[in-house]
Simulated scan of single mutants.
Amino acid sequence: MRHFNLNKMMNYSKLILMVITSALITACGNKENKTKDTQKTEVSKSIEFQNKGHELVYKMTQKTGSYQDLLKLKDIVFNYTYRTPDQKEDVSIESYIFDGELSHATYIKHQRTLPELKGKMEQAYNGKDFWVKIDGKDITAEDAIESVKFTRKTNFYWFAMMQKLLDPGINYEYLGQNSVNGTNYDIVKITFSAAEDIATDIYQLYINPETHLVDQFLFTVVSKNVTDPILMRVTYEEIDGVLLTTYRKYTKSDWKANVINDVWVEEITKDVKFNQGLDKALFNK
Protein backbone atom coordinates (compact mmCIF):
# COMPACT_ATOMS: atom_id res chain seq x y z
CA MET A 1 0.00 0.00 0.00
CA ARG A 2 1.32 3.46 -0.95
CA HIS A 3 1.77 5.86 1.98
CA PHE A 4 0.65 9.50 1.54
CA ASN A 5 2.57 12.37 3.10
CA LEU A 6 -0.12 14.39 4.88
CA ASN A 7 2.01 17.53 5.12
CA LYS A 8 2.73 17.50 1.40
CA MET A 9 -0.96 17.08 0.64
CA MET A 10 -1.83 20.04 2.89
CA ASN A 11 0.83 22.22 1.28
CA TYR A 12 -0.36 21.22 -2.17
CA SER A 13 -3.94 22.01 -1.21
CA LYS A 14 -2.91 25.45 0.06
CA LEU A 15 -1.09 26.09 -3.20
CA ILE A 16 -4.17 25.17 -5.24
CA LEU A 17 -6.34 27.40 -3.02
CA MET A 18 -3.96 30.34 -3.48
CA VAL A 19 -3.98 29.91 -7.25
CA ILE A 20 -7.79 29.76 -7.36
CA THR A 21 -8.13 32.76 -5.03
CA SER A 22 -5.67 34.78 -7.10
CA ALA A 23 -7.52 33.90 -10.28
CA LEU A 24 -10.83 34.93 -8.71
CA ILE A 25 -9.42 38.26 -7.50
CA THR A 26 -7.95 38.96 -10.93
CA ALA A 27 -11.20 38.03 -12.62
CA CYS A 28 -13.21 40.24 -10.26
CA GLY A 29 -10.79 43.12 -10.81
CA ASN A 30 -11.01 42.74 -14.57
CA LYS A 31 -14.79 42.49 -14.32
CA GLU A 32 -14.90 45.67 -12.21
CA ASN A 33 -12.72 47.56 -14.67
CA LYS A 34 -14.76 46.28 -17.60
CA THR A 35 -17.96 47.27 -15.77
CA LYS A 36 -16.69 50.83 -15.24
CA ASP A 37 -15.57 51.09 -18.86
CA THR A 38 -18.89 49.63 -20.02
CA GLN A 39 -20.82 52.10 -17.85
CA LYS A 40 -18.88 55.03 -19.33
CA THR A 41 -19.52 53.72 -22.84
CA GLU A 42 -23.23 53.23 -22.09
CA VAL A 43 -23.53 56.76 -20.65
CA SER A 44 -21.73 58.17 -23.67
CA LYS A 45 -24.04 56.27 -26.01
CA SER A 46 -27.13 57.45 -24.12
CA ILE A 47 -26.24 61.13 -24.66
CA GLU A 48 -27.46 62.68 -27.88
CA PHE A 49 -24.58 64.93 -28.84
CA GLN A 50 -25.41 68.10 -30.74
CA ASN A 51 -22.25 67.66 -32.81
CA LYS A 52 -18.55 66.83 -32.54
CA GLY A 53 -17.97 69.90 -30.38
CA HIS A 54 -20.48 68.68 -27.80
CA GLU A 55 -18.84 65.24 -27.76
CA LEU A 56 -15.38 66.74 -27.24
CA VAL A 57 -16.64 68.76 -24.27
CA TYR A 58 -18.24 65.62 -22.81
CA LYS A 59 -14.92 63.76 -23.12
CA MET A 60 -13.22 66.69 -21.39
CA THR A 61 -15.58 66.42 -18.40
CA GLN A 62 -14.72 62.73 -18.14
CA LYS A 63 -11.21 63.92 -17.27
CA THR A 64 -12.01 66.94 -15.08
CA GLY A 65 -15.12 65.56 -13.42
CA SER A 66 -18.65 66.82 -13.98
CA TYR A 67 -20.79 69.17 -11.93
CA GLN A 68 -22.39 66.08 -10.39
CA ASP A 69 -18.96 65.27 -8.98
CA LEU A 70 -18.81 68.72 -7.39
CA LEU A 71 -22.29 68.23 -5.93
CA LYS A 72 -21.07 65.04 -4.27
CA LEU A 73 -18.30 67.07 -2.63
CA LYS A 74 -21.00 69.40 -1.25
CA ASP A 75 -19.01 72.58 -0.63
CA ILE A 76 -15.58 74.19 -0.75
CA VAL A 77 -13.38 76.78 0.97
CA PHE A 78 -10.20 78.15 -0.63
CA ASN A 79 -7.88 81.15 -0.74
CA TYR A 80 -8.14 83.20 -3.92
CA THR A 81 -5.87 85.91 -5.31
CA TYR A 82 -6.78 88.14 -8.24
CA ARG A 83 -3.74 90.18 -9.37
CA THR A 84 -3.62 92.80 -12.13
CA PRO A 85 -0.44 93.85 -14.01
CA ASP A 86 -0.04 96.91 -11.75
CA GLN A 87 0.31 94.41 -8.84
CA LYS A 88 -2.93 95.47 -7.20
CA GLU A 89 -4.77 92.53 -5.67
CA ASP A 90 -7.99 91.14 -4.36
CA VAL A 91 -7.24 88.45 -1.78
CA SER A 92 -10.26 86.60 -0.42
CA ILE A 93 -11.38 83.47 1.38
CA GLU A 94 -14.00 82.02 -0.96
CA SER A 95 -16.74 79.66 0.29
CA TYR A 96 -19.23 77.94 -2.03
CA ILE A 97 -22.07 75.47 -1.64
CA PHE A 98 -22.48 73.72 -4.98
CA ASP A 99 -26.19 72.97 -4.65
CA GLY A 100 -27.67 76.34 -5.62
CA GLU A 101 -24.25 77.85 -6.42
CA LEU A 102 -24.16 79.82 -3.16
CA SER A 103 -21.12 82.06 -2.89
CA HIS A 104 -19.47 83.97 -0.02
CA ALA A 105 -16.17 85.82 0.34
CA THR A 106 -14.29 87.51 3.14
CA TYR A 107 -11.71 89.89 1.69
CA ILE A 108 -8.26 90.27 3.18
CA LYS A 109 -7.49 92.84 0.46
CA HIS A 110 -9.81 94.44 -2.10
CA GLN A 111 -7.69 96.78 -4.18
CA ARG A 112 -9.57 95.87 -7.39
CA THR A 113 -13.14 95.20 -6.22
CA LEU A 114 -14.89 98.24 -4.67
CA PRO A 115 -11.55 99.78 -3.59
CA GLU A 116 -13.36 103.02 -2.71
CA LEU A 117 -15.05 101.24 0.21
CA LYS A 118 -12.49 101.23 3.00
CA GLY A 119 -12.54 98.50 5.62
CA LYS A 120 -13.06 94.74 5.88
CA MET A 121 -15.34 93.60 3.08
CA GLU A 122 -17.68 90.63 3.11
CA GLN A 123 -20.00 89.78 0.22
CA ALA A 124 -22.27 86.90 -0.73
CA TYR A 125 -25.02 85.39 -2.85
CA ASN A 126 -27.53 83.21 -0.99
CA GLY A 127 -29.36 81.82 -4.00
CA LYS A 128 -31.71 84.77 -4.17
CA ASP A 129 -30.05 87.98 -2.98
CA PHE A 130 -26.64 89.59 -3.28
CA TRP A 131 -25.23 91.62 -0.41
CA VAL A 132 -22.07 93.37 0.76
CA LYS A 133 -20.87 94.59 4.13
CA ILE A 134 -17.98 96.83 5.15
CA ASP A 135 -16.84 96.37 8.74
CA GLY A 136 -20.12 94.56 9.41
CA LYS A 137 -22.35 97.35 8.05
CA ASP A 138 -24.70 96.76 5.10
CA ILE A 139 -23.86 98.63 1.90
CA THR A 140 -26.96 99.14 -0.24
CA ALA A 141 -25.68 101.47 -2.97
CA GLU A 142 -26.82 100.17 -6.36
CA ASP A 143 -23.36 100.30 -7.96
CA ALA A 144 -21.91 98.29 -5.05
CA ILE A 145 -24.59 95.60 -5.37
CA GLU A 146 -24.04 95.42 -9.15
CA SER A 147 -20.32 94.93 -8.53
CA VAL A 148 -21.08 92.12 -6.08
CA LYS A 149 -23.39 90.43 -8.61
CA PHE A 150 -20.62 90.42 -11.18
CA THR A 151 -17.88 89.28 -8.78
CA ARG A 152 -19.86 86.50 -7.09
CA LYS A 153 -21.09 85.07 -10.41
CA THR A 154 -17.70 85.42 -12.12
CA ASN A 155 -15.60 83.95 -9.30
CA PHE A 156 -17.89 80.93 -9.00
CA TYR A 157 -18.02 80.38 -12.75
CA TRP A 158 -14.26 80.58 -13.26
CA PHE A 159 -13.78 78.06 -10.46
CA ALA A 160 -16.35 75.52 -11.78
CA MET A 161 -16.32 76.36 -15.50
CA MET A 162 -14.97 73.07 -16.84
CA GLN A 163 -17.50 71.07 -14.81
CA LYS A 164 -20.34 73.41 -15.87
CA LEU A 165 -19.74 73.13 -19.62
CA LEU A 166 -22.46 70.48 -19.87
CA ASP A 167 -25.10 72.77 -18.29
CA PRO A 168 -28.49 73.01 -20.06
CA GLY A 169 -28.85 75.87 -22.53
CA ILE A 170 -25.35 75.62 -24.00
CA ASN A 171 -24.78 75.48 -27.75
CA TYR A 172 -21.68 73.80 -29.20
CA GLU A 173 -20.04 74.31 -32.58
CA TYR A 174 -16.93 72.51 -33.80
CA LEU A 175 -14.69 74.99 -35.63
CA GLY A 176 -11.89 72.65 -36.74
CA GLN A 177 -8.28 72.74 -35.59
CA ASN A 178 -5.68 75.40 -34.92
CA SER A 179 -2.00 74.85 -34.17
CA VAL A 180 -0.58 76.71 -31.15
CA ASN A 181 2.99 76.14 -29.95
CA GLY A 182 3.18 72.79 -31.73
CA THR A 183 -0.16 71.44 -30.50
CA ASN A 184 -2.98 70.99 -33.01
CA TYR A 185 -5.97 71.95 -30.88
CA ASP A 186 -9.62 71.12 -31.52
CA ILE A 187 -11.60 74.36 -31.33
CA VAL A 188 -15.13 74.33 -29.90
CA LYS A 189 -17.28 77.45 -29.88
CA ILE A 190 -19.63 77.84 -26.92
CA THR A 191 -22.68 80.10 -26.85
CA PHE A 192 -25.51 80.33 -24.34
CA SER A 193 -29.24 80.27 -25.01
CA ALA A 194 -31.03 83.40 -23.80
CA ALA A 195 -33.87 85.72 -24.70
CA GLU A 196 -33.42 87.22 -28.17
CA ASP A 197 -32.80 90.72 -26.81
CA ILE A 198 -30.07 89.61 -24.39
CA ALA A 199 -26.51 89.41 -25.69
CA THR A 200 -24.46 86.54 -24.26
CA ASP A 201 -20.78 85.79 -24.09
CA ILE A 202 -18.89 83.69 -26.63
CA TYR A 203 -16.24 81.15 -25.68
CA GLN A 204 -13.81 79.27 -27.89
CA LEU A 205 -12.26 76.26 -26.18
CA TYR A 206 -8.84 74.97 -27.23
CA ILE A 207 -9.04 71.25 -26.42
CA ASN A 208 -5.78 69.31 -26.36
CA PRO A 209 -6.32 66.10 -28.41
CA GLU A 210 -3.78 64.21 -26.29
CA THR A 211 -5.10 65.06 -22.81
CA HIS A 212 -8.70 65.98 -23.80
CA LEU A 213 -8.34 69.03 -21.53
CA VAL A 214 -8.92 72.71 -22.31
CA ASP A 215 -5.46 74.31 -22.17
CA GLN A 216 -6.74 77.76 -23.06
CA PHE A 217 -9.88 79.52 -24.27
CA LEU A 218 -11.08 82.80 -25.71
CA PHE A 219 -14.01 84.65 -24.16
CA THR A 220 -15.94 87.91 -24.20
CA VAL A 221 -17.55 89.83 -21.34
CA VAL A 222 -20.62 91.38 -22.91
CA SER A 223 -21.97 92.67 -19.60
CA LYS A 224 -18.86 94.88 -19.40
CA ASN A 225 -19.05 95.81 -23.11
CA VAL A 226 -16.00 93.66 -23.90
CA THR A 227 -16.73 92.04 -27.26
CA ASP A 228 -13.15 91.66 -28.45
CA PRO A 229 -11.64 88.32 -27.36
CA ILE A 230 -9.66 87.75 -24.20
CA LEU A 231 -7.31 84.78 -24.00
CA MET A 232 -7.31 82.69 -20.82
CA ARG A 233 -4.64 80.06 -20.15
CA VAL A 234 -5.11 77.54 -17.35
CA THR A 235 -3.14 75.07 -15.25
CA TYR A 236 -4.86 72.15 -13.51
CA GLU A 237 -4.48 70.48 -10.16
CA GLU A 238 -6.23 67.26 -9.11
CA ILE A 239 -7.94 67.53 -5.73
CA ASP A 240 -10.31 64.90 -4.31
CA GLY A 241 -10.85 63.30 -7.71
CA VAL A 242 -11.62 66.42 -9.75
CA LEU A 243 -9.35 68.59 -11.88
CA LEU A 244 -9.47 72.29 -10.99
CA THR A 245 -7.95 75.24 -12.84
CA THR A 246 -6.03 76.48 -9.80
CA TYR A 247 -3.91 78.88 -11.86
CA ARG A 248 -5.37 81.06 -14.59
CA LYS A 249 -4.08 84.09 -16.45
CA TYR A 250 -5.62 86.20 -19.18
CA THR A 251 -4.77 88.99 -21.61
CA LYS A 252 -5.99 90.66 -24.79
CA SER A 253 -6.00 88.52 -27.92
CA ASP A 254 -7.43 88.16 -31.41
CA TRP A 255 -9.81 85.40 -32.52
CA LYS A 256 -6.85 83.25 -33.60
CA ALA A 257 -5.55 83.25 -30.00
CA ASN A 258 -2.62 85.49 -30.86
CA VAL A 259 -1.56 87.57 -27.85
CA ILE A 260 -1.94 91.29 -28.54
CA ASN A 261 -0.46 92.61 -25.32
CA ASP A 262 1.83 90.36 -23.28
CA VAL A 263 0.53 91.72 -19.98
CA TRP A 264 -1.48 89.29 -17.87
CA VAL A 265 -4.04 89.27 -15.10
CA GLU A 266 -3.48 86.33 -12.73
CA GLU A 267 -5.97 84.26 -10.73
CA ILE A 268 -4.55 81.90 -8.11
CA THR A 269 -6.46 79.30 -6.08
CA LYS A 270 -4.77 77.75 -3.03
CA ASP A 271 -5.55 75.72 0.10
CA VAL A 272 -8.60 74.01 -1.41
CA LYS A 273 -10.77 72.13 1.09
CA PHE A 274 -13.93 70.32 0.03
CA ASN A 275 -16.83 69.11 2.16
CA GLN A 276 -16.43 71.57 5.04
CA GLY A 277 -20.01 71.31 6.26
CA LEU A 278 -20.78 74.96 5.49
CA ASP A 279 -23.90 76.37 7.13
CA LYS A 280 -26.24 78.19 4.73
CA ALA A 281 -26.53 80.92 7.36
CA LEU A 282 -23.06 82.08 6.24
CA PHE A 283 -24.57 83.23 2.94
CA ASN A 284 -27.37 85.30 4.51
CA LYS A 285 -26.95 88.82 5.82
Rank of each mutant, 00 (worst) to 15 (best):
residue 3 H to P: 00
residue 3 H to R: 07
residue 5 N to M: 11
residue 9 M to Q: 07
residue 10 M to Q: 12
residue 11 N to I: 12
residue 12 Y to G: 13
residue 14 K to C: 08
residue 15 L to M: 09
residue 21 T to P: 00
residue 32 E to D: 03
residue 33 N to V: 01
residue 34 K to F: 12
residue 35 T to A: 02
residue 36 K to T: 10
residue 36 K to G: 00
residue 38 T to W: 10
residue 41 T to S: 02
residue 45 K to Q: 08
residue 50 Q to R: 12
residue 51 N to W: 11
residue 51 N to R: 05
residue 53 G to E: 07
residue 54 H to K: 08
residue 57 V to F: 04
residue 61 T to V: 05
residue 67 Y to T: 09
residue 68 Q to G: 12
residue 68 Q to T: 08
residue 73 L to M: 05
residue 77 V to D: 03
residue 77 V to I: 15
residue 78 F to G: 05
residue 79 N to H: 14
residue 84 T to V: 08
residue 87 Q to H: 10
residue 89 E to H: 14
residue 90 D to G: 05
residue 91 V to Y: 13
residue 92 S to Y: 13
residue 98 F to G: 09
residue 100 G to T: 15
residue 102 L to V: 04
residue 104 H to C: 07
residue 105 A to V: 14
residue 106 T to K: 15
residue 107 Y to Q: 00
residue 108 I to A: 00
residue 110 H to N: 15
residue 112 R to Q: 11
residue 113 T to K: 04
residue 113 T to W: 06
residue 118 K to A: 15
residue 123 Q to M: 09
residue 123 Q to I: 14
residue 124 A to I: 12
residue 125 Y to Q: 13
residue 126 N to C: 02
residue 129 D to E: 14
residue 130 F to Y: 08
residue 136 G to P: 11
residue 139 I to L: 04
residue 146 E to N: 11
residue 146 E to G: 04
residue 147 S to R: 04
residue 151 T to V: 15
residue 153 K to Y: 14
residue 156 F to S: 11
residue 158 W to V: 10
residue 160 A to W: 00
residue 160 A to G: 06
residue 170 I to A: 02
residue 172 Y to W: 02
residue 179 S to N: 13
residue 182 G to R: 10
residue 183 T to W: 06
residue 184 N to Y: 07
residue 186 D to S: 13
residue 186 D to W: 13
residue 189 K to W: 01
residue 191 T to G: 15
residue 192 F to R: 14
residue 193 S to T: 04
residue 194 A to Y: 03
residue 195 A to L: 08
residue 197 D to Q: 05
residue 199 A to K: 14
residue 209 P to F: 13
residue 209 P to T: 10
residue 214 V to S: 03
residue 217 F to T: 06
residue 217 F to P: 00
residue 220 T to G: 07
residue 229 P to K: 04
residue 229 P to Y: 12
residue 232 M to T: 02
residue 232 M to C: 07
residue 235 T to R: 08
residue 237 E to N: 05
residue 238 E to A: 12
residue 242 V to I: 09
residue 245 T to I: 09
residue 246 T to I: 01
residue 247 Y to S: 06
residue 255 W to I: 03
residue 256 K to P: 07
residue 257 A to F: 06
residue 257 A to L: 02
residue 260 I to M: 05
residue 261 N to M: 01
residue 264 W to R: 07
residue 267 E to F: 11
residue 269 T to D: 06
residue 269 T to W: 10
residue 271 D to M: 11
residue 278 L to P: 00
residue 279 D to E: 02
residue 283 F to R: 00
residue 284 N to G: 09
residue 285 K to F: 00
